[in-house]
Structure formats: structure tokens, C-alpha cells
């Protein structure tokens, strides 16, 4: 089938970008990224016709877990399908003659490096600021010494399933990172091991989140709808509770 692709092309971090159109022939079994592989092969084979060169895009595991692939596809991060990363989106979701616009994740905290590649290191910096339980290697008690109720363990897992792709930020009308930070904070707040550092963790992580230039949450819910791992908005409610708890605790 024939697809018309409008792709954001930007030569470097400080270059001006713009959408450029390409016509491409694909089959329904291809993944969305394989379509880009085919496009790039076309562009590489015709350097005279396409002096702009192939399209840079981030990808790695191509099985929906590493969180490296990004792309905003027709205005939705990771494209139209529920709980599906860009790499797992297949062209059978489209039909002959479709026109698809592909842009990079857009946020001040995710500057564009080239074409569809953005810098998401702000997420790492948030996690440096307390996104851990302080346990030295070798200092752990026996794993079964601390039973954890299945309900709590399952809920913690639901939050821990976050793959750190940044779709929540890209989808949010405010480019807010509350769902991501909420998931990280909630995972550790839900397990007993995370209790000791609970107060300091949330405060520091949110401070860094603010300093990185993410927007504020106004509860649109776009993050949840775009999240390929279906992290619930409950993470944000939980994050707010944790913040309130921390405020009370530090006031003591």
C-alpha cells in the first residue's frame, strides 16, 4: 500500500526544522519503524534527489520494552493504538493512501538533537535525585524475610512497568512529567523497602522535575491515554499524596 509521510526534518539541535513529505510503498506486515528503515534506504540510494539524507530516529529493542523509540504519529506519541509502542505499531493499522505526520516528542525538557531524536536525559536526572532505595550490595536480608502482600506487590509492579519513554510528557498539553515521576515515586512508596526514604525521595525528585522545565499537571489525562504501559493516572494522585505527606512530615 502507498503511504504519504510528512516527517519532521531538523539537521541539528540549533537548526530550524520543518516537515517534509515522502511517498512510500509498504506492506501491512511491516512495523512502523520498518517503514522508516525502508524510507531511509530510499533516501540513501538517491542522495542527489534527497540531499537532506536519511531520517535519524531513536530505536533499540524493537519489542516494546527499552523505551528508546519515540515519535509523535499524527499527534499521538507512539501512534494510534492503545498500549503499543512505536516499534510495535504495525502498518496493518493503516490503509492504502493514508497520510501520516511524524514529529519528534516536543518539550523544553526534551530538546531535539536531530530529526526525530530527542534528548531525554532530564528523566535520568530526576531519578538520580533519590529514585532508589539505599541498599549497599551485600547488605540485603533474606528475600523472604519481608513478606509483601500480593495486592501491594501487584500495585507496585503496575507503577514499575514504566519504560521511561517520555510519551506522557509528549502527549501532555503542558509537557508535564507528573505521570512518569508519579510512577517512579509510587513504585517505591508501595513497597516496605521504600519507606525509610519515602519523604526525602518525593521532595527531591519533584524539585528536579520542576527545575528541568517540565510543565505542571492540570489533569488532562493525555499521559495515561498515550502511555504504552498503561500507567494509571492514579500515579499522579499518589504522587500528590506523597508530596502532601512529605510536606506534613517536614513541617514537624
Amino acid at each position: 500500500m502507498k503511504i504519504k509521510l510528512n516527517v519532521w526534518r531538523q539537521a541539528g539541535p540549533n537548526a530550524t526544522g520543518g516537515l517534509k513529505s515522502y511517498d512510500i510503498e509498504v506492506t501491512e506486515h511491516m512495523s512502523f519503524l520498518e517503514m522508516f528503515d525502508v524510507l531511509n534506504e530510499q533516501l540513501l540510494r538517491n542522495p542527489d534527489k534527497h540531499p537532506e539524507g536519511p531520517v535519524a530516529f531513536d530505536h533499540d529493542c524493537r519489542e516494546g520494552i527499552c523505551g528508546m523509540c519515540s515519535m509523535v504519529i499524527d499527534g499521538v506519541p507512539h501512534g494510534p493504538n492503545k498500549a503499543t509502542t512505536t516499534c510495535q505499531l504495525h502498518m496493518r493499522s493503516y490503509k492504502d493512501g493514508d497520510e501520516i505526520t511524524v514529529e519528534p516528542f516536543r518539550a523544553k525538557a526534551f530538546p531535539v538533537l536531530r530529526d526525530l531524536v530527542v534528548d531525554r536525559s532530564s528523566f535520568d536526572r530526576i531519578q538520580h535525585a533519590g529514585g532508589y532505595i539505599s541498599v549497599r550490595t551485600g547488605a540485603a536480608p533474606d528475600a523472604n524475610a519481608l513478606p509483601i502482600g500480593k495486592a501491594d506487590a501487584d500495585e507496585a509492579f503496575d507503577y514499575a512497568a514504566c519504560i521511561g519513554c517520555g510519551a506522557c510528557v509528549a502527549a501532555c498539553p503542558n509537557a508535564s512529567a507528573m505521570l512518569f515521576v508519579g510512577a517512579k515515586v509510587s513504585h517505591l512508596a508501595k513497597v516496605p523497602q521504600g519507606q525509610v526514604e519515602r519523604v526525602g525521595r518525593v521532595t527531591r525528585m519533584v524539585d528536579v522535575m520542576d527545575a528541568e522545565g517540565f510543565g505542571g499537571c492540570t489533569n488532562h489525562g493525555e499521559c495515561e491515554a498515550a502511555c504504552p504501559k498503561e500507567i494509571s493516572l492514579d500515579a499522579i494522585a499518589m504522587l500528590n499524596t506523597e508530596l502532601a505527606r512529605a510536606a506534613v512530615a517536614s513541617a514537624k
Partner: peptide, 8 residues
């Protein structure tokens, strides 16, 4: 070690 780190 992993359980102590909070691995669910």
C-alpha cells in the same frame, strides 16, 4: 539484593 532494591 534485588528484593532489597524494591524489585517487584
Amino acid at each position: 539484593q534485588c528484593v532489597a532494591q524494591g524489585v517487584p
